[in-house]
Simulated scan of single mutants.
Amino acid sequence: MKRMCMAPVVVLVMLLTFVMAPLHANAAEEKVLNLFSWSEYFPQAALDMFEKETGIKVVYTTYESNEAMFAKLKMLEGKGYDIVVPSTYFVALMREQGLLSKIDRSKITNFGNLDAKVLGGPFDPTNDYSIPYMWGSTGMMVNSKHVDPATITSWKDLMRPEFKGKVLLSSDLRDTIGIALKALGYSVNSRSEAEIKAAYEFLKELKPSVLVFNVESTKQAFIGEEVVIGMSWNGDAVIAMQENPDLKFIYPKEGLPLWLDSLSIPVGAEHKDNAHKFIDFTLRPDIAKMIVEEFLYSTPNTAGWQLLPDELKNNNAVSPTDKDLTGSEFTNSVGDAKAIYEKYWEMLKTN
Rank of each mutant, 00 (worst) to 15 (best):
W155N: 04
K204H: 05
Y133D: 03
F18V: 15
E30V: 03
E294P: 05
S190F: 01
I229F: 06
H24T: 04
V10M: 13
W135D: 07
G268Y: 06
V118F: 05
T153P: 11
L119V: 01
V91E: 11
S209W: 01
A68V: 04
L203A: 08
E293P: 02
S154W: 06
L33V: 02
W345D: 09
G55T: 07
G335C: 01
L296R: 12
T151M: 08
I239N: 14
P122C: 00
S264M: 00
M347G: 07
A45E: 13
T138E: 10
F42E: 07
W38Q: 11
E67M: 05
D128V: 04
Y81W: 12
F90E: 07
L308S: 14
L203E: 01
E77A: 13
P86Y: 11
S187R: 02
P320D: 09
Q242E: 14
A21M: 05
W305K: 15
L325E: 02
K31E: 09
Q97R: 15
N127H: 04
P285H: 04
L47H: 06
L206K: 11
A237R: 14
L99I: 00
V85D: 15
L12V: 08
W135H: 10
D104T: 09
M159C: 00
G80I: 03
V227K: 03
D286K: 10
E30Q: 13
T153H: 11
M69G: 02
P300M: 11
L203H: 10
V318K: 15
K52V: 07
D286Y: 03
N244G: 07
L325C: 05
L114E: 09
T109L: 12
L263G: 04
P161T: 00
Y251P: 03
T109Y: 08
F281Y: 13
I56F: 03
E254F: 03
N127M: 02
P300V: 08
E29S: 12
G268K: 03
V210Q: 01
L260H: 04
I250C: 01
S262F: 04
L181Q: 12
V212W: 10
S130D: 13
G80Y: 08
L325R: 05
I287M: 06
A337T: 14
A288D: 09
W259G: 11
H24P: 02
P149E: 15
G230K: 09
S217Q: 14
P149M: 15
F222P: 12
A339G: 05
